[in-house]
Amino acid sequence: MRVLESLTADIKAGVLKPGERIPSESELCERHGVARETARRAVRVLRERGVIVTEWGRGSYVAEQQPKEAAPNE
């Protein structure tokens, strides 16, 4: 899913910093040429992974503390 990969790469590279608002679903749709459900799914996956937090009615933001990646043997 290119939206998920793009957001993940931007967060890891520091393009999107902790506490910074990520693009809205509408912006993600326009930027990546995808349906709204695709953008919504990418945001949901990142939220479930603890990479972003959502403040309902305000938007989604890069989490202040990023989850640790699982060790290779886990």
Rank of each mutant, 00 (worst) to 15 (best):
S24T: 15
S6V: 06
T8W: 12
V15S: 15
E74D: 13
A39N: 00
V51H: 07
Q66I: 02
E55D: 13
G14H: 12
A35L: 07
N73P: 02
P72Y: 09
R58W: 00
H32V: 04
M1S: 14
S60N: 01
G19P: 14
W56Q: 12
S26Q: 11
A13T: 11
L46P: 00
L4H: 09
I22C: 12
V15Y: 15
G57Q: 07
R36C: 00
T38A: 04
G50R: 10
A39K: 01
P23K: 05
G14S: 13
E74K: 07
V34D: 05
I52V: 11
C29G: 04
R44E: 14
T54Y: 03
R21Q: 13
K17E: 14
A35W: 03
T38V: 08
S6Y: 04
A42D: 01
E20T: 13
G59K: 08
V43A: 08
Q66L: 15
E20I: 06
L28D: 08
K17Y: 11
P67D: 01
G33M: 01
G19Y: 09
V51Y: 07
R2S: 09
C29M: 15
V43Q: 01
R36P: 03
G33F: 10
R41K: 12
G59N: 08
S24V: 08
Q66G: 06
C29H: 04
L28C: 09
V51L: 10
V3P: 02
V34E: 06
V45A: 09
S26W: 08
G19T: 12
